[in-house]
Design a protein around this nucleic acid. Structure first.
Lengths: 171, 171
DNA sequence: TAGTGTATGTTATATCATAACGTGTCAAGG
DNA sequence: CCTTGACACGTTATGATATAACATACACTA
């Protein structure tokens, strides 16, 4: 996970995790885990759904539903919004992707299966999105909710700011 | 129709904060503090902006931009979307209202001026929204971000679940 | 009063999302 | 085998949310 972010050449690409890593490895890894997860849960990772997940993984950043749709259409899948939205909804429901509401966009989950309710760090300059470990955040949030008698089922934790790279650039 | 939401008789209303309180009092109080805040910041709480804030306070729940627009139009203000969006943006920028992205809606801030970056607890049954104190949440989130070298400027913390009243109803 | 900055109003359009219905696929049970 | 039912996918149509761009009005001040 901490090996260089290597896309077959030594070239680096904008990295949503703000930390170099082997992208091709994590992509394949995630796909494999997605297959297993789907089987475990008794749901079907159909061609469209799988392809959407691949698209998100390849993009390695948050994509709008229509961005995804365009790519699907170019490959012979349906070219109407519900095609993309349904696949994306499936992925989100099954923990394989996340919806970033601030961006009206979706991105692949980098840690499927691990019970995590991540926080998202969104760079306002480059739009990169990182999944930050948020277990302590969840604990604090649950406590705050409990104080009001509220029971949390799902949450969206999104923060806007500057990623390390863009902090340097904006000095 | 836009009659003051008068709870001066001790009557309770569906309360987004999940805790009974004197609504007329907090509404007036918030408006007064908004005036002061605007003056302090050197920004203008114009009629439209003030009226939008009142509308949000009276509704006492999250309203969509078009809901707000409808009420504005009915009172002789402009009836085109930018009128509502601009006023709402102003209120959000100046800490007088919050945007609830999960609901594509806005609600008045109940604690303007106090430096708070609240978490929102959204009931999936009745759509009530509570502002939960989130200082510890912020601390945890800042720590998580710091670990990735990310600097948080703003954040949206939204949780979906069941409010106390709806927990009872769904048993 | 003319000039400047800001706010508002208006037109038009962009962007995001879903309802509703028809068709295809496939596996389980008759 | 062949029906049936569940599910996924494709398509049409529309709904809901949001902003760009420009015109007008207002408030201040020099």
């Amino acid at each position: 996970m901490t090996s260089p972010h290597n896309h077959s050449q030594g070239k680096t690409c904008p990295d949503p995790a703000f930390a170099p890593h082997d992208h091709s490895h994590c992509t394949g890894d995630v796909l494999a885990r997605a297959e297993v997860l789907a089987a475990d849960r008794g749901v079907r990772l159909t061609p469209v759904r799988r392809r959407v997940l691949e698209i998100l993984l390849e993009a390695h950043r948050a994509l709008g539903a229509y961005d995804v749709l365009q790519r699907l259409a170019a490959e012979g899948f349906g070219n109407q919004p519900p095609v993309a939205y349904r696949a994306l909804e499936f992925l989100v429901e099954n923990g394989l992707a996340h919806r970033i509401r601030r961006l009206n966009a979706f991105m692949a989950c980098m840690h499927p299966g691990e019970d995590h309710s991540p926080a998202f760090l969104i760079c306002r300059v480059c739009d990169a999105v990182a999944e930050a470990p948020a277990a302590p955040v969840r604990v604090a949030l649950d406590a705050a909710a409990a104080g009001l008698g509220f029971v949390i089922e799902r949450s969206n934790l999104e923060a806007l700011g500057l990623c390390p790279a863009c902090q340097a650039g904006s000095a």
